[in-house]
Design a protein around this nucleic acid. Structure first.
Lengths: 245, 245
DNA sequence: ACCTGAACACCGTTCAAGT
DNA sequence: ACCTGAACACCGTTCAAGT
């Protein structure tokens, strides 16, 4: 677990794990962003406050402003950190080694894993306005886009086919993951478990009430796999067109 | 509409149309929600405040609480109103008359029209947590879902096929429309126009910088049409399976 | 019946001051 | 160098009071 790496100065008293706010270890941006993500995971996005975040770090809110420019910039930092997590997790920077289908599958599952790990934070990745038109959510980093395009072209995709694939891939991920994550209670903190009883007024909607069970069934995982498979098929067609034309 | 029935006591103040009865026309929920949507359209979601909304209506903020339970409930009301707008616009309650493909196309374009008309408010439709698992964004009303399912079944879809189509349709709409709307400046109010100059650090990303033009090109409309066409093809397959099996 | 004034707890953010 | 206290403008929400 804890690698016994040397620590440069003798703050040896605090050892490992998540050190609770300690006197002499100064804050740093990374710790603040991680704390923000944890806070959102536990309390929900709406509950995140500069003052409460400071409190969680054992510090007054004003101390945060030495490391983040403001709340907006904090949230941007959270998004960056989540996106960086996707990259590390999916090893997206690796080039395709088992064909482009495997490559794309790996990326898709990497993003999905992060979304499911942080369902209350993921909508942030989706909704912050992109800084550039080539950074479509949820693939909000140049590293991501570069790796995606380069990976596909190394596997025989033309410029046009790679760009089309990029658009299709982002739309696919955004729609599926946002929907999946929204069912996991994406907004509020203390969420009441839904009642199993009959919803009021449902008797006016015969189809919905008859298909209630099937509509409520959690098919997110297989749905994702099937839609991803469909996407790969479409991408294969576009790739061939590019080669033929 | 309102028959001139006598009301026995004065608790009425029943609101009919836009009649200015006496001095200040009293507020009503509809007017508040419409004002909120206008405010979001013009100033952005982040700028919406109970106090400022009151001001826009010529009233103190506290007066709003007679008609909405709070800010959260206000936003839910905004979502309901936008969804109602989709229904009116797309005439979703009409049953299919030119085949189910035409039916689904009509619905899709109706939702897209509302999204494009209110790009800064649409993310709300996507991100508020659904009240029930059968109300997947952006189709957040029982009327919508009922009409969708009934429409497809009347055109030969089985239960399973209709439910699968519903899932696929919502994912498709959410992904495409959220992405399209996010490029229209979905978050901030006074947004600076982006610089045409070279982005910093782009030289480290050869693919992105080479494909810059193509990536920035606005293909949202054709992309939507093509993906919708794809979706219809998939739905056609699922429909046949249902009939064959 | 409908709206307002005053009040409360909480927010983001600044800046001079502490250590 | 890093953090805090005090202050400011603004927020959502309540409630008694005005008309």
């Amino acid at each position: 677990m804890t690698s016994g790496d040397d620590v440069k100065d003798a703050d040896a008293a605090l050892v490992n794990g998540e050190a609770p706010p300690s006197r002499h270890v100064p804050l740093d941006r990374g710790r603040i962003l991680d704390a923000a993500i944890s806070y959102i995971d536990e309390q929900g996005l709406a509950g995140l406050t500069m003052r409460r975040l400071g409190q969680a770090l054992g510090v007054e809110a004003m101390a945060l402003y030495r490391y983040v420019a403001g709340k907006e910039e904090l949230l941007d930092g959270v998004v960056d950190r989540l996106v960086a997590g996707m990259q590390a997790d999916a090893q997206v920077l690796d080039r395709p080694s088992d064909g482009w289908q495997d490559f794309v599958q790996r990326l898709a599952h990497g993003v999905r894993r992060v979304a499911l790990a942080h369902p209350k934070a993921f909508p942030l990745v989706a909704s912050r306005p992109p800084e550039a038109p080539w950074l479509r959510p949820p693939l909000r980093s140049l590293e991501w886009v570069e790796a995606f395009l380069a990976g596909l072209e190394s596997e025989g995709f033309s410029d046009e086919a790679a760009v089309a694939a990029y658009r299709a891939f982002t739309s696919f991920l955004l729609g599926h993951l946002l929907l999946e994550v929204s069912t996991l209670g994406a907004d509020l903190g203390p969420l009441d478990v839904m009642e199993e009883s009959v919803e009021p007024g449902l008797e006016d909607f015969p189809m919905v009430s008859r298909l209630r069970r099937q509509l409520a069934e959690d098919k997110a995982a297989v749905e994702f796999e099937e839609a991803l498979e469909e996407l790969l098929n479409r991408m294969a067609l576009v790739r061939q067109e590019g080669n033929a034309g």
